[in-house]
Design a protein around this nucleic acid. Structure first.
Length: 101
DNA sequence: GCCGTGACTACGC
DNA sequence: GGCGTAGCCACGG
């Protein structure tokens, strides 16, 4: 994979349990500020068997950027980690946002 | 190389 | 947090 993808992957992989981060932050912390859309694209094209905790990544509004079945699964995993997520997939960024370190 | 599209963000209301 | 709008970057057709 190219360097960008590698940086993003490792960054996402570092998100601690019980925390979440936004696409913009992931990109910024990985050294690519402004590449939030590419992060989203990367997540969208992840292989099915990936071990990456991409479900800990939400959008700038603190909501899971997904709907339907994938949203449910993503929400369940977060709830299991102690993150309060509403049925709509909303959560308190103020409380769960990862600071990148 | 232009154009539409997307699991986005920032800004204003 | 929600809606509309503009700007953003990369990919597929």
């Amino acid at each position: 994979m190219d360097d960008f993808a590698g940086q993003i992957y490792s960054q996402v992989h570092q998100i601690p349990l019980g925390k979440v981060s936004t696409y913009g932050d992931i990109a910024k912390f990985a050294g690519y500020p402004g590449y939030h859309r590419q992060v989203g694209r990367l997540m969208a094209t992840l292989p099915e068997g990936t071990t990456l905790p991409w479900y800990r990544v939400v959008n700038a509004k603190g909501m899971i950027s997904q709907q339907g079945d994938d949203l449910v699964r993503q929400r369940q995993r977060l709830l299991a980690e102690g993150v309060e997520v509403s049925e709509a997939g909303k959560l308190s960024l103020k409380t769960y946002r990862w600071d990148g370190r």
